[in-house]
Every structure is written in C-alpha cells, then in structure tokens.
Simulated scan of single mutants.
Amino acid sequence: MKKINLALIGASARGLPSYVPYVLAHSDEAEFVAVASAQASLDNHLMAFAAEASRLRQGLVVEMSEFKATILASSACN
C-alpha cells in the first residue's frame, strides 16, 4: 500500500499537534513530507518583509540582495 504524503503548509504551532497523533497512529498509511527547503522558506519570508519595507517607503524599490544581507548581518549580531 502506498503511503499518503501529508504536507503541512502554513501549519502553525497550534495546528501541527492536531496532525501528529494521526500520523503516528497510522504511520503505515501516512507520512509527513517537506514541501520546501528551509532556504526557500527563509527567502519567501524575507521577500514579504522587503515588500513591507517598500510599502513603508512609499513604494521605493528594495534590492533583495542588499536587504537580505542587511537582515542576516543584523541577526548575526544578536
């Protein structure tokens, strides 16, 4: 029997626990699969933050490579 692949897209910390017991109880039928890499998720979140930065600056274009470097450099300091 082929397993059902469960991809949790946008499952918050509150939503995830409701799926885990089912998958553990039916591990012969279902399994969690990764939908996107951590890098892709990080890049998508940074793009959303860059869009908000642009909005706050009346639509000024935000260069993603510079924005990403700035954000990552500031998080390395913390």
Rank of each mutant, 00 (worst) to 15 (best):
N44Q: 15
A13T: 10
R55G: 13
E63W: 05
R57V: 03
A50G: 12
E31P: 00
A36P: 00
A25P: 10
F67L: 09
S65M: 09
V33I: 15
V62W: 01
K3F: 01
Y22A: 10
F32D: 07
N44C: 11
Q39P: 00
V35K: 09
S54Y: 00
N5I: 03
K2Q: 06
E31R: 13
R55C: 05
A36L: 13
S54D: 02
V20W: 01
Q39W: 03
A36S: 13
A76Q: 13
L16W: 01
D43G: 05
I71Q: 00
L72H: 06
F67R: 10
A36Q: 11
H45M: 14
P17C: 08
K68T: 15
S27C: 03
R55H: 10
S37C: 09
P21M: 07
D28I: 00
L42H: 08
L46P: 09
E31Y: 00
R55Y: 08
V62N: 03
M47A: 15
I71P: 00
E29C: 11
S41Q: 14
L60F: 04
M47R: 15
S12G: 13
A73F: 06
A30M: 14
A30G: 00
D28A: 07
N5G: 06
A11Q: 04
D28S: 06
I4Y: 04
A50Q: 05
L42I: 12
S65C: 07
L56R: 15
L6M: 11
A53Q: 11
M1P: 01
A50L: 06
L6W: 03
Y19I: 01
A7Q: 11
E29G: 03
P21T: 05
S65N: 14
F67A: 09
G59H: 01
E52K: 15
S75V: 14
A34T: 06
N5T: 01
V20R: 12
A13Q: 11
N5Y: 07
Q58G: 08
L56Y: 09
N78V: 13
G10W: 05
N78T: 13
L56M: 14
K3T: 07
A30K: 02
A7S: 09
I4R: 05
A69M: 10
L60R: 11
S41I: 15
V33S: 05
A40W: 05
S54E: 04
S37M: 09
A51S: 10
K68M: 04
F32L: 07
S37P: 02
V61F: 12
V62E: 04
E29Q: 15
A11W: 14
I9H: 03
A73G: 14
P21W: 04
M1W: 05
T70Y: 08
S54I: 00
A11M: 11
K3E: 02
S65P: 13
E29N: 11
S12L: 03
A7H: 06
G15A: 14
F49R: 13
K2P: 12
V61P: 10
H26W: 03
L46N: 08
L8I: 01
M1S: 12
V62P: 06
S18I: 05
I4T: 07
H45G: 13
S27M: 04
V20A: 04
L24R: 09
S74T: 08
S12M: 02
E52H: 12
A73L: 08
L56Q: 15
Y19P: 00
L56I: 11
